[in-house]
Every structure is written in structure tokens, then in C-alpha cells.
């Protein structure tokens, strides 16, 4: 399994906003443990909130990464606030909307909204908010040095950027 919790970037406004979606599928192994069926066969597959937060972290993290054209190693440093009002089940689609709140050489803060779409309806329903803080690893105050290569934005992310027509932001063509 690949650690990718968004399927596609669907909107991008430079320096401001990025929107991504994820289709929740019953083929995802973790849904069968969360929660597995008991003696009465009462399985309840739910998208774990922790992984919804990861999805927002990837969405907002890419947005923060674009601000430096992926020159900075952007890592999630803090979940400032997360609220979730409704569950997400297989067959539904998640929508992550991330906005830059503040950007600085040391890091960034983002504000995010979570929506779900229950097919065949067409209206997105907001189900939560997730505000995050990211740190630029090489600018960390402890002075620890990290490898030069940008290991945060791996090939997985380049694939996502490429399919959204944003490959130029990560300079994929030059490789």
C-alpha cells in the first residue's frame, strides 16, 4: 500500500488554495479493521478520522510546498484544531479544501474544510475543519541538518501533481 490519502488535485490557486478529493473504497484494508465485525456480524467500516487528517495534511502540505516550488522540506508539525461532525463510509467521496493562513521562512499555517459527497447526490456537505501548522525542516531552530534531497515530496506526490497538470511546479520535466 502507498501512503497516499488523496486521489486527485481538482483546484489550485497559486499561493492561496488547493483542493483535493479522495474516493473511499471498501478495497482499503484498514476499513475492515475499523471497525471489524463482532460475533453478530455487525461490521462498521468507517474512514478513520486520523487518516482524514492525514489527507488534509497531504493536501495542505502540497500547497505549502508549492509556495517554495518544493525547495523546502515541508513537514506537518502540529494539528492546531480538528473537528469532525459526521462519519465517512466506503462509496463516499472526501473533498479537502486547504488555504494558506500564514507563510513564513520557518513554516506555514493552513486552514482546511472537509466535505463529503454521498453518491448519487451532487451537493457537497461540509463535515469538519482541520487547521494545521507545517515546519520547513531545514529552517528549524534546533540547527539539525537533514539530507539535501527533498525526501518529503517523493515520486508519489509528483504523480499527483502530474495528473493535475501541475508538474511544472515540481520541475518534473527537467528530470
Amino acid at each position: 500500500m502507498r501512503w497516499m490519502w488523496i486521489d486527485q488535485i481538482i483546484q489550485y490557486e497559486p499561493d492561496r488554495r488547493l483542493v483535493a478529493i479522495k474516493n473511499v473504497s471498501l478495497a482499503e484494508e484498514h476499513l475492515h479493521d475499523h471497525f471489524e465485525s463482532g460475533p453478530d456480524g455487525d461490521a462498521l467500516p468507517l474512514m478513520p478520522t486520523s487518516l482524514i487528517i492525514e489527507g488534509m495534511a497531504q493536501t495542505a502540505g502540497i500547497l505549502v510546498g508549492t509556495m517554495s516550488r518544493f525547495q523546502e522540506k515541508v513537514v506537518l508539525a502540529k494539528v492546531v484544531k480538528a473537528t469532525m461532525e459526521k462519519d465517512v463510509v466506503p462509496g463516499q467521496t472526501l473533498r479537502y479544501e486547504a488555504e494558506i493562513e500564514r507563510y513564513d521562512p520557518l513554516g506555514a499555517s493552513t486552514q482546511g474544510k472537509i466535505f463529503r459527497l454521498t453518491h448519487p447526490e451532487t451537493e457537497w456537505e461540509q463535515i469538519g475543519t482541520i487547521d494545521l501548522m507545517f515546519s520547513h525542516l531545514d529552517q528549524n531552530v534546533s540547527g539539525i541538518e537533514f539530507p539535501e534531497e527533498n525526501f518529503v515530496f517523493s515520486d508519489n506526490f509528483k504523480t499527483i501533481l502530474q495528473s493535475a497538470g501541475l508538474a511544472h511546479l515540481a520541475a518534473i520535466e527537467s528530470e
Binding site: 508539525a77 502540529k78 492546531v80 493562513e101 500564514r102 513564513d104 520557518l106 513554516g107 499555517s109 501548522m133 515546519s135 528549524n140 531552530v141 534546533s142
Partner: peptide, 12 residues
């Protein structure tokens, strides 16, 4: 340390 950055952002 990351809280300090958060605090600075919020003070601003």
C-alpha cells in the same frame, strides 16, 4: 518550538 511559531503568527 513549533508552538512558538504558532504564537508568533497569532500575535501578528
Amino acid at each position: 518550538s513549533i508552538d512558538f511559531l504558532d504564537i508568533v503568527f497569532r500575535l501578528e
